[in-house]
């Protein structure tokens, strides 16, 4: 998809449950597979990566849908630590 649409036209939205898994997926999508295995070993796609529970996502989601589908997960998961996990591997400018 990145080859077809260009990395600037692709945004990945994660739904992972904790900081570690979010960091792992984000790193794979930004810098390549950290375990150096599989098709993204050494392939830095440099994609924009967000988590579905980040404020930026909440802003663009219909509040009714958010309430019905995401509010519970926002309460259940540790969103602050998930964002910290993302920011460890996200380029600074996107994190800002």
């Amino acid at each position: 998809m990145t080859e077809k649409y260009g990395k600037d036209n692709v945004v990945v939205v994660l739904g992972s449950p904790d900081a570690d898994s979010t960091e792992l997926y984000a790193e794979t999508l930004i810098n390549g597979d950290p375990a150096w295995m599989g098709p993204l070993a050494g392939v830095a796609l440099g994609l924009s990566v967000y988590h579905i529970l980040e404020p930026e996502m909440k802003e663009i989601i219909d509040p009714q849908i958010y309430e019905g589908q995401l509010a519970l997960m926002a309460l259940a998961l540790d969103v602050d630590s998930i964002i910290k996990g993302l920011d460890k591997v996200r380029p600074k400018k996107q994190a800002d």
């Binding site: 992972s16 449950p17 904790d18 570690d20 898994s21 792992l24 997926y25 259940a76 998961l77």
Partner: peptide, 9 residues
């Protein structure tokens, strides 16, 4: 493997 702690979630 990045699948999280399923029971805990």
């Amino acid at each position: 493997q990045g699948s999280g702690d399923v029971p805990r979630t």
